[in-house]
Amino acid sequence: MHGVVNQAIEGLISQRFGTEAWEEIRIASQCADTTFYNNHNYSDTVTYALVVNASKILDMDIQTLLFEFGKYWVLTIAAEKYAALLHSAGKGLREFLVNLPNFHSRVMLYYPEITPPEFKVLEVSDTTLELQYFSKRPGLHPFVSGILEGLSTFFETPATIELMDTSMEDEYHKSVFSLHF
């Protein structure tokens, strides 16, 4: 998993529960890294371990945690490191999402070694969009919900975000979100 994802986990926990809680979770997850780099790739096992242990130690369910990590990632990490980049992809959330698959492909040029998710966006109506999220990794849709929620705030575009369906398509875990503006 890309470093910035782990940064979001560390960031949220440290900010909301303190650095001691983070240390405890990190050690329980047998994560030797005390700092996560932007452009490094870390093993998925570590990320999953961090989430599972955080859930145990902070007594929060995993779905809620993942959602919060997603939101935090957009509003804190992405806002700090990728703000201009995000804005360049579209004016407002709707435009951003419509451009997302294309933009995402472009950004993936710089990360040849990673396993990125894929996106498909359908304009259902003037006020509704459907976002299809395809990932080789299971169980991450609450994270995506959080990200969408965060993006809604970031682009100052209020929207109702709903998870409609999850299924398997080929080797991908598919999640379908509906966004109503």
């Binding site: 804005h87 360049s88 992809a89 435009e95 933009f103």
Partner: peptide, 11 residues
């Protein structure tokens, strides 16, 4: 990338 924003340009 900030220049893009400044000129109100998008990808």
């Amino acid at each position: 990338v900030e220049d893009l924003q400044q000129h109100d340009l998008f990808v």
